[in-house]
Amino acid sequence: MADFYSAVDTAIRNQESLIITYETDEDAALALLPEADELRLADPFTAKVVFVKMPATPWGAYNEAYQLIDCTWDGKPCIYPVRLLVDGDVGLMIGRELWGNPKKFGTIEFYRESSLLQCTGERPRGNRIVTAIMHPDTPIEVPTVNMDVLGFRVIPNPEDPSTFSLAELLINTLRVTTTAAWAGQGSLLFNDPSDLDPWYKLPVRKVISSVFTVSDVDTGERAKIVKRY
């Protein structure tokens, strides 16, 4: 158990990320946010789909795909993950048990053909949920940022299913140092609508930006609990 927790306070090196930011539906986004007076949607109402390849972490190499809502906590920008796919067991455990991220096992693939990068997420394998395609053609500068990521950690009550043994909203701060980045035209598609993995319910109104980055991510401080329910 000590090794499990010590692995959290470390760094991920040479992380590759394809980030598609898009305008979405206000009501659909509000329906996914936890109730908290300090929590607000960003204006305009935007979401992100992010595909991540992690070649160097303390618990091995693995890939992830996220669907995130852009929001603010007490006026400060943050992101709230609503759906995540991951293909590594330790990454799943840390994300769910410590940080309250709703991770599920899935298949995440990166394809490069000519000048295009395509990323896909499937669950189960063969049932494609989401596809992002990008042409990364314009080098850009991305400053080092401290990124606040919200998580909603819930443990059901085994004696009373209508209540929780634990329900906490927390913030995990990541320091992201981008070593290379490119912008370009991109597209985002939710492929096979499934109520088991309803990514399509946070619809794409318009793609705002598409960025490919190579970054180092430091987890730094442990997450902080900001609200108990």
Score class of each variant (00 low, 15 high):
M1V: 14
D3T: 14
S6T: 13
R13G: 00
N14K: 13
Q15K: 14
Q15S: 09
Y22F: 14
E23N: 10
T24D: 08
D25P: 09
D27Q: 14
A29I: 07
L30K: 14
L30F: 05
L30Q: 12
A31P: 04
P44Y: 08
K48N: 10
M54C: 11
A56Y: 10
W59G: 04
G60I: 05
A61V: 02
W73D: 02
G75W: 05
G75Y: 09
G75M: 04
P77K: 10
C78S: 11
P81H: 11
L92W: 10
I94N: 06
E97T: 10
F105N: 13
G106M: 03
G106F: 02
T107K: 10
E109W: 02
S115K: 12
S115E: 14
L117I: 15
T120N: 03
G121H: 04
E122P: 01
E122C: 03
V130D: 08
V130H: 08
T131W: 01
H135Y: 09
V142E: 11
P143A: 05
P143I: 08
V145A: 12
V149S: 03
F152T: 06
V154N: 09
P156I: 01
N157P: 05
E159M: 07
P161Y: 12
S162Y: 03
S165A: 10
S165H: 00
L166V: 02
E168R: 11
E168Q: 15
L174F: 10
T179L: 08
A180N: 13
S187G: 11
L189C: 07
P193S: 05
P193M: 03
W199S: 00
W199D: 00
P203N: 03
V204W: 02
R205Q: 13
T219V: 01
I225F: 07
R228E: 12
